[in-house]
Structure formats: C-alpha cells, structure tokens
Design a protein around this nucleic acid. Sequence first.
DNA 1: GAAACAATGGGATACGGTTCCCGCACCGGC
DNA 2: GCCGGTGCGGGAACCGTATCCCATTGTTTC
Lengths: 361, 361
Amino acid sequence: MSERTASGDSGRATIRDVAARAGVSVASVSRVLSGNYPVSEELRRRVMKVVQDLDYVTNAHARSLAGGGTPTVAILINNITGAAFTHVAKGVEGAASLRGWLSLVGTTGDDPERELALVNLMRQQGVTAVILLGGAYDYDEYQLRMARFARSLDAAGSHLVLVGRPPLEGDVPATTVDYDNEGGAYAMASHLLSAGHRRVLVLPGHAELTTAQGRLNGARRAFEAYGVPFDPKLVLHGPYDYEHGYDAVEESLRLGLDFTAVLAGTDVVAAGAMQALRAGGLRVPEDVSIVGYDDIPLASQLTPQLTTVHVPYEEMGRVALRAVANRRESGGGRRRGGDGDHVVLGTHVVVRQSVQPPPVS
Amino acid sequence: MSERTASGDSGRATIRDVAARAGVSVASVSRVLSGNYPVSEELRRRVMKVVQDLDYVTNAHARSLAGGGTPTVAILINNITGAAFTHVAKGVEGAASLRGWLSLVGTTGDDPERELALVNLMRQQGVTAVILLGGAYDYDEYQLRMARFARSLDAAGSHLVLVGRPPLEGDVPATTVDYDNEGGAYAMASHLLSAGHRRVLVLPGHAELTTAQGRLNGARRAFEAYGVPFDPKLVLHGPYDYEHGYDAVEESLRLGLDFTAVLAGTDVVAAGAMQALRAGGLRVPEDVSIVGYDDIPLASQLTPQLTTVHVPYEEMGRVALRAVANRRESGGGRRRGGDGDHVVLGTHVVVRQSVQPPPVS
DNA sequence: GAAACAATGGGATACGGTTCCCGCACCGGC
DNA sequence: GCCGGTGCGGGAACCGTATCCCATTGTTTC
C-alpha cells in the first residue's frame, strides 16, 4: 500500500493500477480492453473484474496520443438557439454518436474573431473535421478566410465542411453540403404568382448574407418567368428574426405600400409579419397571403399554418457527417474536384393554409 | 530533408519541428507558447516566426496528458432542438467560451443506455464537469443511478451538475441548479384563479417527469389556497409537445368537458392547445383563457401573445458553469452540504394577452 | 522424439507536450 | 579579483496508453 497503486489514491485510476491489481502486464490490460488481440478467457476475466472494481475508464487523451482515440467532429454555429441550424447540429450529432464519435460545439455569434479562435482551438483538439453551419456573409475577405481555414485544417490532417453556404472557389480542400436555396425560392414565388399575386412584399434577409441573396434571386427569376414586373421598392432587407418581420410589415402598411402577399425569408420572419398584418387589421390569408422558408416546427404551429419551403436541415447534418466518415475511410486522399466535394440537397414547397388568391379589388 | 522534421511532412507539425527549425530546445518553445516563464525577446521572436511559418498549434491531447490542457465541460441534453433547454446549453457554452473552456455536447434521446454510455465517454475525456440538462423521470432507480454517476465522476476528478431537476438525496457529490418550478406554477394558477376562472384544464406533462409533478403540485396548491375544488378529471398527462396540446384539448372538447381556461405545462403545449381551441370554434382569450410555461420566444409570437411563466434558462446555464469554475478554483474540496451545492433561481409570471375573465354564462 | 509452429503474455518504446532540475553567463558587492 | 546571485536556456523525466517485438508455453507434424 505504499506504492502509488494504492486504491484510495486521489485522481483517476490508470491502466497501471489495473495491471498491478490484476497481477498482469499493462499490455495485457490494454489488449483486453481494446479487444483486438487474442486473449485467454482467464486473463479477460481477471482484468475485467479489476476494471469494474476500480470503475476504470481509459484516458482518452493518452489514447489518442498513442494512436487510437475516438474521432471527434467540431460543430461551429452562430447561435445554438437559432431555429433552423440546430436541426443540422442534431443531424450531425446523431450520425456521429451512431458511430461512436464525439461532437464538440462552439458558437461564433457572428464574430470572425471568435470563429478564427474556435477553428484553431479545434485544430488543437485534433478533430476529424470542423463543420461550419449557416449562411455566410459575402465579404471580399470571406473566400480567402475560408480557404485559409481549409488549408490549415487539411495540413493538420483535419477537414473543413461548409453546411448551408455556397462552395469555395478554386482548388480548396473543403467539402460543401448545400441545399437548393434559389430553387426553393423560385418555387415558392411561383406558387404565389400562380395563385394570382402580382405585388409581393419580399423580406429576403440581410443583403450581404449568401442565403438571402439566393432567396432574392430565386424570387426575382420567378417573376421574370411569369413576366411580372419585380418592384425593388417592395424588397426590405433585415435580420432573420421575428422583430424584423413585424417591423418591416408595420412600416410597409404605414407607408401605404401596395401588396397582396408577403414572401418572408424565414418562417420566423413570416411569423412576425403575420402578427403585424393582424395588428394592422388585415386577415391572413383572406386579405394578405404569406409564405415562409425553412419549414421549422413553428411553421405548422402558426394560425393559419404556414405555407413554406422545406429544407432538409437534419438530413444535411447527416450527409455532412457521412461525407467526413467516407473521406476518412477512403484514406482522405487528394481526390478533389470529384463529386462528393459538393452535395446539394433538394428543397420543396410545403403547401399549408397561408396562401389564397388575392382579394378582388 | 531526410529527417522527419522535413517541412513538407504529412501530418501536423510537432513542437520538435518548431524547435529544430528555430534552432532552440523543445523546452524553450513550450515556454514561449505558454508564456509562464521568463524568455528573452530574441528567443520569443525566433520561435514565433517559425510557429507562424509552420502554422503550428499545440496538440491538445499531449498537453492535457502532461498536465495542462483546456478545461472542457460536457453538456448532456435530451434533444438539441428542444425549445427550452437549448437556452441552458447556450448559457453554458457562452460562459464556458468566455473563459476559454470547451463544450462537448451529447444527446441522450431519453435513453438511459445512451446516457450511461455518454457519461462514461465523458469520463474518458477527462471533462471538468458533466452537466445534465432537463427534467428527469422519477423512477425508483433514478436516484441510485444519478448517485452512481456522481460518485463515479467525482472519483475521476470530474463533477456532476444537474440542471432543471430536483437535487439528489443524501450525501452525493453533485451540484444542482434548479428553478422555482412549483412556485411558478402556483403563481400562474393563482393568476387564472384571481381572474375568476374556476374550471381549468391542466396539461402538466408526463406524470413521471419531475418537472410535470412540480407544475401540477403548484397548481393544486393554488387551488387550495383559493378554496377552489380541484377536479382531477381536468388533468390530462402527456408529452411536452405541440401534438399533445392539440389532441388533449380536442379530446376534451369532444367529451364536452367544462372549462374556461387551459393551464399548459409548456408554451409549446399551449400553442397546440390554442390551435385546437380555434379549430373547435372557440376564441382565445374571449371564450377560453390559456397560459403556458417556460417563456420561450414562441410565447410572444403567438396570437394572442401568451401569458406564461418565465424561467431563466440561459442564466441557469451560466450559473451551472460558474459553479463548476468556482469549485475548480477553490480546489474542489469536499465541502458538501454547504450552500452552492443547490442553487434555486426564481421564476415569475409574464402577463401578456391570453388571459381574460371567463365569459359570463 | 525433436523441430516447427500457433497462441498468448510481457518489456520496451513512441506519441507530443510540460516542467523540474541543472548549467552557463553575466552582474554587482566586498 | 573572487564569490554569490540572477536571468535564461537545455536535457531529461514524466503524463497514460497502444503496439511492436520477443519470450514462453503447449501443440502438431514428420
């Protein structure tokens, strides 16, 4: 009881403690626990007994230093409580733990500094991949920044995955999992147009956000396809939140803008817009129709239930993780430019109750 | 270029590579990077130059093996996309990264097996604390199970934190961060009673869930205090989701149950209930009043805006992390039973627009 | 019956850092 | 001019595990 193998020792038990107590070598304990080496039944029993007595678990840090270790993915997200991308996180986490992988989570809060710090922190952790969630701001510097991340992670044996943003230009070692953003917006706008709406208030989101740009483009293309003039004065940019939806509609009503439908950039914005319409004495959808984007649970919980664009967020998360896993299994070779580097998932309109033909004036 | 210090080497650069390239010892590089040892300006420059050239980051696993390492907390949650407890996660993560700590996230999906597996996985990772989020099922086995977790983590130098559930009985090394659940329900029910409601449909949640039990008890106590008979037939148990709220109310209307208000176990349940009332041709709050619990963003986005109980979820997360940090700084001594082991945060009613006196019949 | 072989356990080393301990150089004071 | 002190850099011993390589034992084959 004088040695450091004393069972009452503070701190956690080591593999040496187990070996000593079971009267076997350290190597044997390791082999019993790994299970990838022939071991006699007698030895296994002896070791497992002690493992349970000591409530021993292997030290993950030591294990990964020595070569093994559980793969870990880092999920970087703007805001955990955000509506849509938490579903992506769920998809990633679910697929990861299905394989016994771990998930680290970091929130960037839209702060480039924090983003950089987190990427480096994750690089230190030796994560298998860093998965960046959510639309990006289309600044000039952005492409360079991401390319730097990608190369940096690649050099460290890790990998960058972009989810929900456009792919990087040039020969950059990164994977992108995207959805047909513009196509969804096109379909959604077409739905309004075919219902007879001609003057539509568009709330696409922040002008610099890639997501918003895509949604606006899709809508505009639909108008062109229908030969309907697209009025830029009916486009109001702003953040993807309830307040913006409310304020934008309230302001539009105050200014007496003429519109019979609202094309909101997200379901949450649609919820705010709907509330403002009601506050202004208008009925939805009898007086004004309204559609959203994302198809989060909220959409089917509003009254009337919201017609919106379904985005397969959770599936995107699963796809992202699968891409990482495949890459790892196939040796992570330098087979860039092939498929698999950029996956685009489809979107579709979910018709509910918030759209009607415009009232006859 | 024959040695493994060659710069074009695959895999990440090591501290040895940096040392060799800078022509200094490994110890010096470590000291420059740690910054906790006097180093000449000349040496610092030489080392930092190489660090940047090689884009070197220290290996977190090696570092924590050797003693240092960034503290990491594990957040275990039922469902990332769940409404209320993601805010706790946000609070934890925010407070953690403010200190440079990392957050691991795992989802249990209400599966005890997965919970156990995750706790062990986190123990392997040597996390500073495991933070368990969300109400618990009050099975007999539960207390024993948690006590085992607590001791197991404690023995490994880690610590268990329970958030949003009642504290463990007996001398167990765990910290609990709780909110005044029953008090909030009492206040909420009182609000309905003082508005004149006497027959209230109560949807507390699953009967076995500690959260639901507390909310039901609070409501019952309020009825007693007001001298109003509490009708058990008006209590419907079920999951905390939109569908349950909808179905429960629909069924109640079908059965012709007599009530003038709905006391929902959560805001999401209230949303479902509200929808079902409308579907049944009833107006809210003119015909039936309705209240929720949690005060998630959804509450103020419903029409009418929901009167509910505010629970300081994000703050609870911050408090949980602060408790862990304090414990760590003060040596994590065995000062159990003192304060700080159980923190209870207050709740309060947020009055909005979903409550009116009952209609005169 | 001896040799070749399969099965299984042990010793030693490597993984990439941190930190203790020591040495060297340069300084001022008596 | 010599000694003690101070400032700073290097060598080496760990941290806890996986695994390579070798030794031992029991078994099969000619």
